[in-house]
């Protein structure tokens, strides 16, 4: 996979100024779902900054991923409103069921678990988002059933 990474198309839309770095990283992540090593190499050449610096910026900001995400991205809101309504228990249940911690991907490559602070749907909290679909008023039990559903769908889909 890595060899075929080519970000020329993305780079063509930019001028090559250093201030475009974050926006470029976002564009690359939008395309690949993460920041492939090779893309960083090409980006560093394009902007004429060291790979080190690119990594420095990429790791400073929460939203960048350096490894490919799983097939389904599970985002758990840990904002204050969700926290006081029991989000930690939902998160713990997901971690236990998936056997992973935040920012990790399950061995079968199906799920990646991420944490976010407030998605602005606090009325529905605790909230989790799976592939852009919002699920509100979560409990640990509901979260577990939700996972079951996704797993079943995978089994039948293939």
């Amino acid at each position: 996979m890595e060899e075929r990474i080519n970000i020329k198309e993305i780079l063509n839309k930019y001028k090559g100024k250093k201030r475009e770095l974050i926006s470029l990283l976002q564009a690359i992540q939008d395309k690949y779902g993460y920041l492939p090593e090779e893309s960083i190499r090409q980006l560093s050449r394009f902007l004429n900054v060291s790979e080190n610096e690119v990594y420095g910026v990429a790791t400073f900001y929460e939203s960048f991923r350096l490894t490919p995400p799983g097939k389904h991205l599970i985002t758990v809101c840990m904002g204050t409103a969700c926290h006081v309504r029991g989000a930690p228990r939902v998160l713990e249940e997901l971690q236990r069921e998936l056997q992973i911690k935040e920012k990790e991907t399950t061995k079968d490559g199906l799920f990646t678990l991420e944490i976010v602070n407030c998605v602005g749907a606090c009325a529905l909290g605790p909230i989790i988002i799976i592939d852009n679909q919002y699920y509100g008023q979560m409990t640990s039990q509901k979260a577990r059933e939700l996972l079951k559903k996704y797993r079943e769908k995978e089994r039948h889909g293939e």
Binding site: T80, N117, G120
Partner: peptide, 11 residues
């Protein structure tokens, strides 16, 4: 809007 639990600016 970094306050985790606020969303008026977004709205």
């Amino acid at each position: 809007e970094g306050d985790p639990g606020a969303y008026m600016d977004r709205s």
